[in-house]
C-alpha cells in the first residue's frame, strides 16, 4: 500500500514542478506572433510552389505583413486570394491577374517531322546539349517533356510530340518556363483566349519548308487588328495583351492558323 502512496506523491510533486517550470519558460520566452500573418497564411493556397519569388507560402505571408510583397503577389491564387488578403491587411487590392502557361509551338507530328531519331536521356535539356536539333524546326518543341517533369500540378502532357497545358490545372507557377531549353513556354493571362502558337523566327519560305503550322510573318494579322495589339517582330507575331480585346479577327485571317484560341483547341 505504501508503494502506491509514495508513487502518487512523487508523481504529483514532479508534475507540479514541471508545470510551474513550463509556465515560467512560456512567459519568459514568449514570441509575439502577428495575428495578421497567421490570417494571411490561411488565405494563401499552400502549394509552396515559390512562384511569388519567396521560399514558400509562410515566407510570402511574412513578406506581405512586413510590406515587402504586394497583397496581390500570389500568382496562383489570383483575384479571390488577393481580395481576401487585402481584407486582412486593410488595404485596397490591386488587380491581380491569374496567369497560365502557354506553349508557343503547334508543331506536332502531323505538321512537322523529326530529322533525327534521338536515343539517350529522355529530357529536352540533354537532347539540346547533344548539339543537334532533333526537330526539323530549330525553334520547335522537342516533346521529351522537361516541362512535364517539373510541373507540380501534372498540368502538362505531351500530345503527338508537343507539350500541351491543361489550363484548369495550371497554377501559373512558371517552373516550366524555366525548364524549357527552347524557351517556348510563356505565362499569359488566364482570361486571354487569343495567342500565337509558334516561335519560329526564320523567314516565311524557311518556315514553310519545316512546318505547315508555322508563323510565316505575313503581317495579315497586324493589318486586321483594330486595336494595334499584334505586331510582327523578327518574322514572328506577338500579341500585346494589355491592348488585345480578344475579338479573334486575327485568328480568322491567319493563313497558317497559328493564332489560336487555347480554350477551344488546346484542352487535354
Amino acid at each position: 500500500m505504501s508503494t502506491v502512496i509514495i508513487t502518487a506523491v512523487v508523481i504529483t510533486l514532479v508534475g507540479a514542478v514541471v508545470g510551474v517550470g513550463l509556465v515560467y519558460t512560456g512567459k519568459k520566452f514568449h514570441v509575439d506572433v502577428d495575428q495578421r500573418e497567421v490570417d494571411v497564411r490561411a488565405c494563401l493556397p499552400g502549394n509552396n510552389c515559390g512562384a511569388c519569388g519567396f521560399a514558400g507560402c509562410d515566407a510570402m505571408a511574412a513578406a506581405i505583413v512586413a510590406g515587402d510583397a504586394p497583397t496581390n503577389g500570389c500568382p496562383v491564387g489570383g483575384q479571390s486570394v488577393a481580395d481576401k488578403i487585402s481584407d486582412v491587411m486593410g488595404v485596397a487590392a490591386g488587380a491581380a491577374e491569374k496567369r497560365v502557361a502557354f506553349v508557343r509551338c503547334k508543331g506536332n507530328c502531323n505538321v512537322t517531322k523529326n530529322q533525327a531519331n534521338y536515343i539517350g536521356i529522355q529530357d529536352c535539356r540533354s537532347a539540346t546539349l547533344s548539339g543537334i536539333s532533333i526537330t526539323s524546326c530549330d525553334f520547335g518543341c522537342l516533346g521529351l517533356g522537361s516541362c512535364v517533369n517539373v510541373c507540380p500540378e501534372h498540368a502538362i502532357s505531351v500530345v503527338d510530340g508537343v507539350a500541351v497545358v491543361n489550363r484548369d490545372k495550371c497554377i501559373g507557377c512558371g517552373l516550366c518556363t524555366k525548364a524549357c531549353p527552347k524557351g517556348l513556354i510563356d505565362l499569359i493571362p488566364v482570361n486571354n483566349y487569343v495567342a500565337v502558337q509558334c516561335s519560329n523566327k526564320d523567314r516565311g519560305p524557311q518556315v514553310k519548308k519545316v512546318c505547315t503550322a508555322g508563323c510565316i510573318g505575313c503581317m495579315l494579322c497586324t493589318k486586321q487588328c483594330e486595336f494595334d495589339a499584334i505586331h510582327v517582330v523578327n518574322n514572328l507575331a506577338y500579341i500585346d495583351y494589355s491592348k488585345c480585346t480578344q475579338c479573334g479577327k486575327c485568328a480568322e485571317k491567319c493563313p497558317a492558323k497559328v493564332i489560336t484560341l487555347p480554350h477551344v483547341s488546346a484542352e487535354v
Binding site: G120, D123, R125, L129, S130
Partner: peptide, 13 residues
C-alpha cells in the same frame, strides 16, 4: 549507363 551524357548536362547546368 549514359554517364557522359549525364555529366555533360550537369556541367552545362
Amino acid at each position: 549507363r549514359p554517364l557522359t551524357q549525364i555529366f555533360k548536362q550537369t556541367k552545362a547546368e
